[in-house]
Nucleic acid binder design. Structure first.
Lengths: 266, 266
DNA sequence: GTCGTCTACTCGTCTATACAAGTAGACCAG
DNA sequence: CTGGTCTACTTGTATAGACGAGTAGACGAC
């Protein structure tokens, strides 16, 4: 038997004297087996029936234990196959120079430059462009009045065919109207290159990062496994004169990214 | 009746023709009520018995629906009281100038400067200092050999008495030995001020941000509600000569922080 | 050999029930 | 009025069972 059977990890038994609920004890045992490496990444957990037999409990209790591990993002279940330790996929780093001017001058938008640099295949789909009155919080960031319109660019980014990020950009309509920014494909270097061509030389960006569990539509759009949180980034682009010219609202799968920042000590 | 009863939000009924499971339909209804504001922040959801009666289903199914919302971080349950919409607490921003030299020169460590600036009361507890051989990934970042030791400083940060962050700093023992860095209280301005006094002028920091669901010990240490992910930051401090002098491994409650970064366009 | 069926296994959903334990208000004895 | 008990609610934990549906390998018909 080259690979040990999944049920062989079941070495511990319940502590009847403990007031810790049975389902938590089972979850603790399995979590320990994962942390210690007794259960390998991608490896299969003991089946529900094996857990029932080993612990002498019922299916609901066993499923409750597995539910804990699922909501912690440690395991994923596959209908008809079994429950598996989540494999940790290789992560993409968003280098903090991803908005460097040299990328734009080389005709690369930030995401494309980043992912190609990592040796993967970036694609973009679900591109939608429209003109709308933005939500208040966006209007505030762009220093726009209540009724001012913006060009809204929505799109989804994929790495090797797997969706990893959705993004919505807001550009004041007064700036973007009549330019290729209103086209689905804004041309080489992306919209930042277009803004700079128009004389809006970019000086700095601010980025606000929060994290939370995804909404159901985000679970669908990013094909997220249960227990995987998302990054929520709101980035504002400012010109050399400190005028905000774009706000980009981004939701990223935390399974696909580590954010990398460089901070001066000043 | 000044406040509408929680069960009055139950206006929708199940769609028997849908193949969406009952527990998901119930979760969808409640999620919609929260999103639309029919259920207010901090407000009470209909009790399990009310949901059972309204939807004509059983307790396990209702609890499964509530479990979905809990794992999404939308609601919290309180034993004996009920289930409530999670109030969104005001968040603390970690400004990107939090490592500015002027704070150290003013005798403020980063966290203290940040939180006091926001008008709240910062405290630190569970301070532990020891000398250890670091994990490989820490040794790599500090460019240390396999057996080189580091001074390890662990502590927990609180805002107005609520724990929000745990941090572990690693400083090469060769640098820290015999200095106040090995003391629980390293003095005004924190360990960065001590390092600069010793001639290690800090030039830049790198910060790697990831997010995931917390481990059980983190749930305890940070008093995290279910469904709240954590930020995991690994920050490396470099001197002017680009020598790494400290690595700080930080786990932060995502309910308490928005990370704020300033990026140059370069 | 190829294809389809059969079967045994997996997890997903749902019903029905029981008792434990925490909470909050009503109520009563003092 | 105070303090305790009682009660009716809440959620937490656990048992026992049923049926549905996806998977994968064995097996046999062709």
């Amino acid at each position: 038997m080259p690979v040990p059977a999944a049920k062989d990890v079941l070495t511990l038994t319940l502590d009847a004297t403990s007031d810790r609920p049975v389902f938590r004890q089972i979850a603790d045992h399995l979590r320990g087996a994962i942390a210690s490496g007794r259960l390998l990444q991608g490896g299969q957990l003991p089946s529900e029936s094996q857990l029932i037999e080993h612990y002498g409990t019922t299916r609901m209790t066993v499923r409750q234990a597995l539910g804990v591990l699922k909501s912690e993002g440690l395991v994923v279940s596959e209908h008809g196959r079994g429950v598996f330790v989540r494999p940790r996929p290789p992560v993409r780093r968003l280098a903090s120079d991803r908005f460097a001017r040299r990328h734009r001058e080389a005709g690369k938008a930030a995401f494309l430059a980043e992912v190609e640099g990592a040796g993967a295949r970036p694609t973009v789909d679900r591109i939608e462009v429209s003109t709308e009155v933005p939500p208040d919080e966006i209007a505030e960031r762009l220093l726009l009045g209540r009724r001012a319109k913006v060009v809204v660019r929505r799109r989804r980014y994929l790495v090797d065919g797997h969706p990893v990020e959705t993004a919505t950009s807001y550009i004041p309509a007064a700036l973007a109207a009549g330019t290729s920014i209103t086209q689905p494909n804004p041309g080489p270097g992306g919209i930042y290159a277009r803004l700079e061509e128009m004389g809006h030389r970019l000086g700095r960006f601010t980025e606000q990062v929060s994290t939370r569990m995804p909404h159901p539509d985000e679970v669908t759009a990013l094909a997220l496994a249960p227990g995987v949180p998302v990054f929520h980034l709101v980035r504002t682009a400012f010109t050399d004169d400190d005028v905000p010219v774009e706000v980009c609202d981004t939701v990223m799968s935390s399974a696909a990214f580590v954010l990398d920042y460089d901070l001066p000590a000043r």
